[in-house]
């Protein structure tokens, strides 16, 4: 089994230029940039999770605010959105049966967050709700919106809890570090069961608790290797795959008799 591949993501350093005196009167607006060294990552079947490093830079930061550490960055790696059903087991005649369920549209399969500080220290909770930022604030749209708010809330909480428990939703407080006034490095976790597909890396810049700017980049995660080829054949050529499975079984049965025959 191939071990986890090392990921490298290089900085996309934007050209930084010194502040001219003119900007001192009208403060330039800060912005944020992130860069990935590659737009696709291949993981093998034995993948046991890894850290993905994303570099980024602040543009036009105010040196005073930067020195006071009042810039905060939140970096998110968001997996492809998929519909999901959450089911709850209840006891019926002593047997645990899936009874109630709630379907959600377009829930990111994975959601890894890295922040400079704990989210609650960066901005007001309402801000996160508005931005739909953070595993606990991510808006999950129920398919049937006529269900009672209490039910929807219960199942949304369960969905978040399950995703967190399986490592698909994670938060890395302190995972974003400023390397200089402009340059930062974010470390987000890739779970062993990270989904394949197009992931979106997003960086949010906060200044003294206020949201300033967002920047994003796309990352394709693919699986490679022998096992993945089998998976692809099983889905793309399912009939031929079935014929192969049956033939393999017959061949094994026949060979087994040949090798161990007694009659």
């Amino acid at each position: 089994m191939a071990g986890p591949r090392a990921f490298a993501a290089a900085a996309s350093l934007s050209m930084l230029f010194a502040l001219s005196p003119a900007t001192a009167q009208t403060p330039p607006t800060e912005s944020i940039q992130i860069g990935l060294s590659t737009d696709a990552i291949s993981i093998t079947a034995g993948f046991s999770g890894a850290d993905l490093t994303i570099f980024g830079s602040l543009e036009n930061p105010d040196p005073l605010i930067a020195r006071q550490g009042r810039y905060d960055v939140v970096v998110v790696l968001e997996g492809p959105p998929r519909p999901v059903v959450v089911r709850r087991k209840d006891r019926v005649l002593g047997v645990w049966i899936n009874l109630d369920s709630e379907a959600f549209e377009n829930v990111p399969v994975s959601y890894s967050v890295a922040t400079t500080r704990p989210l609650q220290d960066i901005a007001e909770p309402a801000k996160y709700k508005q931005l739909s930022l953070g595993a606990q604030n991510l808006y999950m749209k129920p398919v049937d919106e006529t269900d009672s708010p209490a039910t929807i809330e219960e199942f949304t909480a369960a969905l978040r809890e399950r995703k967190t428990a399986t490592g698909l939703y994670s938060e890395n407080v302190g995972g974003v570090q400023f390397l200089s006034q402009n340059l930062f490095r974010a470390t987000v976790r890739l779970a062993p069961n990270v989904p394949v597909g197009t992931h979106k890396a997003r960086a949010f810049l906060f200044k003294s608790g206020m949201f300033v700017k967002e920047s994003s980049a796309q990352l394709e995660i693919r699986k490679s290797g022998f096992e993945q080829s089998i998976f692809r054949v099983a889905h793309d050529y399912s009939f031929l795959y079935g014929v192969f499975a049956v033939s393999l079984a017959m061949l094994t049965g026949w060979l087994g008799r040949l090798i161990f025959r007694k009659d």
């Binding site: 998929r82 519909p83 999901v84 059903v85 959450v86 089911r87 709850r88 087991k89 209840d90 002593g94 047997v95 645990w96 899936n98 379907a103 959600f104 398919v143 199942f155 369960a158 969905l159 809890e161 399950r162 995703k163 428990a165």
Partner: peptide, 16 residues
């Protein structure tokens, strides 16, 4: 297994 309390009451599955 049918009668024992499951460790997780909630489960997720892909819709559709």
């Amino acid at each position: 297994d049918l009668f024992a309390t499951p460790p997780n009451l909630y489960s997720l599955s892909a819709a559709g």
